[in-house]
Nucleic acid binder design. Structure first.
Lengths: 191, 191
DNA sequence: AGGATTTAGTAACAAATGTTAATGTAAGAA
DNA sequence: TTCTTACATTAACATTTGTTACTAAATCCT
């Protein structure tokens, strides 16, 4: 599970083993809420197996804002970093195998990481990447039509479309599931 | 101009004076392109006076993605950080007084800053803030109607609406200027 | 001051998207 | 397996938003 991360970070064994102990394996059934809107995030998760969505409640309807699959890290970074109530819900969409780490332990690692110029740079790059991703999402919603956004998703994360029920995808794209059906139908006809 | 930044960072005078020298004052007429799509960003700007927009070209039409006013810092962080062609254009919308700093000099400051745990934290917080802002923008486009987004903008950045021509605002909200007219009319009637 | 350009509002029509309801199919639970 | 629930598609109609064209006002330039 952690081998790919290890080789990427190039940590020495001693530190590495220490860090590994901070993570705890859990299994969760589908449709489990890992973090509820309004509560403060105390854990981050790495997904070994399964699939998770992040969503916000909007007058009873929920809107999915992100999907995560294997080897990705999930959590409300905002709630985590600033110790404030999470604006989002985090929920499994399949039976999942997860590894969680507490805020305290992750903070310890981050503190260590920040002392090493090379790792620090990797970390800051990682945060920038997140920022750029959100920037891209944002621009994409005003620049492209739902059809175009669907095709992009199909291109960039086909796994998501294959595994996740369509109405979640629709909500993620900002359209109704009926309209997504129309879009798929349209693509089908054009071929 | 730099006093508020200075007091915020609590730097000692010696370092501070050193950093100040990295900034250069320039005046720019309205509608000047500071950074063109496709070119690599070499400068960051702080706005002393005036107003700037960031936009991307979409089949001949331009879409405004951000506005900046006095005391804000502008630049294509993505192009800056990764040394890649900028996806956006940056353009003045009023005659501006700006202070620019070169990538090299800013990198020097950042490197210094990262050595000090307190400043490092401020810096990382700043980046996280950007990320959260983009997250909010993104969520807002799928969660709220154009009317709601207009009211939010009016609430959060009234300055922008007062100073900037309506078709740029419309483009920023992702709607046509005609539709923004309708929205304003609608708000007017409801009062 | 005067002419050109930019900007904002309105109307009419067109296109995109949402809503509701009905139907069939697939997937999960007892 | 059988029942129930979740999911996807389609049609009909409603609503939202875009486009084009026209007008009037405001601003810019010389």
């Amino acid at each position: 599970m952690f081998k790919s991360i290890k080789s990427k970070l190039q940590l020495d064994n001693e530190k590495w083993d220490h860090y590994i102990d901070y993570f705890h394996r859990i299994e969760m059934p589908s449709k489990t809420i890992l973090l509820e809107e309004g509560s403060i995030s105390k854990k981050m998760y790495i997904i070994e197996k399964g699939c998770i969505r992040v969503w916000i409640n909007n007058n009873g309807k929920d809107i999915t804002t992100q999907f995560f699959i294997e080897n990705e890290m999930v959590g409300s970074i905002e709630s985590f970093r600033k110790n404030i109530p999470s604006p989002t819900n985090i929920e499994t969409m399949e039976p999942c195998v997860l590894w969680w780490i507490s805020k305290e332990n992750l903070d310890t690692i981050v503190e260590e990481v920040m002392k090493d110029p090379r790792l620090r740079n990797l970390f800051v790059d990682k945060i920038f990447e997140r920022t750029f991703d959100y920037m891209k999402y944002f621009i994409s919603t005003i620049k492209y039509s739902p059809l175009e956004r669907y095709l992009q998703l199909l291109e960039e994360r086909p796994e998501i479309i294959r595994r996740i029920p369509q109405h979640y995808i629709a909500s993620y794209l900002g359209i109704s599931s009926v309209h997504l059906s129309r879009i798929k139908n349209q693509i089908h006809k054009e071929k």
